[in-house]
Design a protein around this nucleic acid. Structure first.
Lengths: 244, 244
DNA sequence: CGGTGAGTTGAGATAAATCAAGCAGAGTGG
DNA sequence: CCACTCTGCTTGATTTATCTCAACTCACCG
């Protein structure tokens, strides 16, 4: 594991999505970091069921949380983008109830094993931020249940694409030709409870309807409002989020 | 709202499911409570989308969290039983992203509006408990996504019934003839993303297979192990949970 | 170049939805 | 005490969204 770098130089902190942090808090965060770790695409970052786990912040790259049934059926719970915390559940509950896998090469910022209790004891502001992030992630999963349970395939694919587009854009990944999109059709299928074949057909329809351009690992959405309508997806205004 | 009652006399605390609490913490919890409130079955405890919200502990009765699409399709996110916290998301995020409705008559214990920041500032142990409860609820929703996305109707119904059975039992509701079951088939359908008709047929099959007895608002599961097998449902050992 | 993973397309099968009707028990009001 | 209405449940018939199976293309890679 490489040594930690200077948090003040962290490129994420400059983004308007993230909340400002006091100098004291920043120092504490820096102090609790023990290093960064690169992992390659496809690597298992955290294995489900393991008792001892580590807390990370995703600095760069994409990942996802998932669960599997013992016969291999897999459900993706949500996708992780830069700024997301991972491993908190393993820290709090006895064992980590899900796995985390890297979708691209990722850069992770690791915390010391006692970082969480230390924050709660000495830095209530940061403790509250951690809880905020937990509540926020639960909101995402709530949305996922709604999609999988009550949206049609067409609707849930559209809603997922809009969601990812907005998230990636808020992490500063949007360009003229859309956002990077390292997700395969099978991943979309596993996130939405669909078969890969059907996912493919739905994507075709969205392409032919002129709603999206999706090729070469990039996603472009022409008319966001129209896609929102297709997906019955109206998101709540996003306040600034904390970054550890 | 009636005055708060003595937390030391709280019948829930006596149950083995709940973690012991120090005298100081108990006093702080008691101090932060401003009263109890009864609500009738079917009442909306918290409306989705509202900005100002209150934090409650469910003392008695059943409730559920849900989201709806604007055309009326409803998804139940999870069921709430005694000891569950409700309204935390509204406290942390700007607005409450889901609704909460009472299934039976409920008794709620209300906290003062500044209780959360106060706990985080002065009582790190309780703050950590709150975060534990948030992480635990997220785990439940993770399981819900897995059920809705990847289990068959038969499997997810079986898994839900086992889950509710265990939870109710751990809240001291189990008797010779099973547990109270105030949930209609439509609720089950909305929790699992199924139609009420299909839910009914699946329940018939479980009845005829001798797996469950379900009548008169009571649920009995003859062979838990067999039901677990049907639902592909193996839960992680439950450590003691905190109670606020 | 063979091999592998992602994506595509067609044909057919099926789990689950929808539509429709009817039944039983619990209230409610006359 | 008797209609009357409601809500929850049940059952049958039919439709449909989505899955499964299978084959084929294409790009990339060692």
């Amino acid at each position: 594991m490489e040594p930690p770098f200077d948090c003040r130089a962290c490129p994420l902190r400059a983004l308007p999505t993230f909340k400002a942090v006091t100098a004291a808090e920043l120092a504490a965060i820096q102090g609790a970091k023990i290093g960064q770790r690169m992992m390659t695409a496809g690597a298992t970052i955290l294995a489900g069921g393991q008792a001892t786990t580590r807390l990370y912040v995703l600095l760069a790259g994409w990942a996802f949380r998932y669960k599997t049934l013992e016969d291999g059926r897999r459900q993706i719970l949500n996708f992780l983008l830069p700024g997301d915390l991972l491993g908190l559940q393993g820290e709090l509950l006895a064992t980590l109830p899900h796995g985390v896998e890297a979708l691209t090469e990722v850069n992770l910022c690791a915390f010391a094993t006692d970082a969480v209790p230390t924050f709660f004891r000495d830095l209530p502001g940061i403790a509250l931020d951690i809880t905020w992030l937990a509540a926020h992630e639960e909101r995402l999963v709530d949305d996922a249940v709604l999609s999988v349970g009550r949206r049609t395939a067409m609707e849930s694919v559209a809603a997922l694409l809009v969601h990812l587009y907005k998230r990636a854009a808020s992490s500063g990944m949007a360009a003229e030709d859309g956002i990077p999109f390292p997700i395969t059709q099978s991943h979309i299928a596993d996130a939405l409870g669909l078969s890969p074949v059907h996912t493919n057909r739905v994507l075709q329809r969205l392409r032919k309807g002129g709603f999206i351009r999706l090729e070469g690992q990039r996603l472009q959405i022409g008319d966001l409002r129209a896609m929102r309508r297709v997906g019955r997806y109206w998101e709540q205004p996003a306040p600034k989020r904390p970054l550890l």
